[in-house]
Simulated scan of single mutants.
Amino acid sequence: MTEQFIPPAGHAQAASAAAGAAGATTAAAANALTHVVDLPPTAGAEPPRAVRLKARGGDRVFLTVLAGSGILVLTVIAVIGGFLGSRASQALHAAGGGFLTTAAWSPGNGTGRASSFGVAGILTGTVLIGLVAIVIAVPLAFGVALYISEYAPPRLRPFFTSLIDLMAAVPSVVYGLWGFLFLEHRAVGVAHWLATYLGWIPGFQVTGARVHDPLAPLTVYTASTFIAGTVVGLMITPIVSSMMRESFSQAPLGEREGAYALGATRWGVIRTVVLPFGRGGVIGGAMLGLGRALGETIAVYMIISLVFRIQPHILQAGASSVAALIAAHYGTATPFELSALMAAGLVLFLVTLVINLAASAIIARSRSGRDSG
Rank of each mutant, 00 (worst) to 15 (best):
V190D: 02
L146C: 05
T34E: 14
V220L: 11
H212Q: 13
T230M: 11
L156I: 12
V119F: 06
V36D: 07
G254N: 11
L290A: 04
F142G: 04
I270N: 13
S149D: 09
Q90E: 13
Y175M: 11
A251Q: 08
I129D: 05
T196D: 14
F308W: 12
H192K: 11
L177R: 04
G345W: 01
P153Q: 04
L146R: 13
V282K: 07
A78H: 00
V135L: 11
L198C: 13
S320D: 03
G85R: 00
S69L: 14
I80T: 12
A17I: 00
I227R: 02
A50C: 06
V232N: 00
A259C: 11
A28V: 08
T230I: 13
S241K: 04
S86T: 13
G233F: 00
A343T: 13
G108K: 00
G179R: 01
L146M: 14
L325C: 04
L194F: 10
A17W: 08
A120I: 08
T102E: 13
A30F: 02
G110V: 01
Y301S: 12
A22L: 12
L253T: 14
E150C: 09
G108H: 05
L53Y: 08
T102H: 06
L53K: 15
T2S: 08
A120P: 14
I298S: 09
E3K: 06
L177I: 15
V232S: 05
A293H: 08
L262G: 06
G369Y: 02
F226Q: 00
A209R: 09
T219P: 02
Q13H: 12
A67S: 15
M244H: 06
V273G: 11
F204C: 04
Q316E: 15
I129K: 09
A286V: 07
W105I: 03
S16H: 12
A45C: 11
R52L: 09
I326H: 04
Q316R: 03
I298P: 11
T34Q: 15
G278E: 03
L194D: 08
M243T: 15
H329L: 12
V274R: 02
V211E: 05
A43N: 07
A343S: 10
G118A: 05
R266A: 12
H329P: 06
R365A: 15
G118N: 08
S115A: 15
A328D: 12
G291K: 03
S149N: 10
Q316S: 11
R370F: 01
G143T: 15
S249P: 08
I303S: 06
M235I: 04
Y260P: 00
S116T: 10
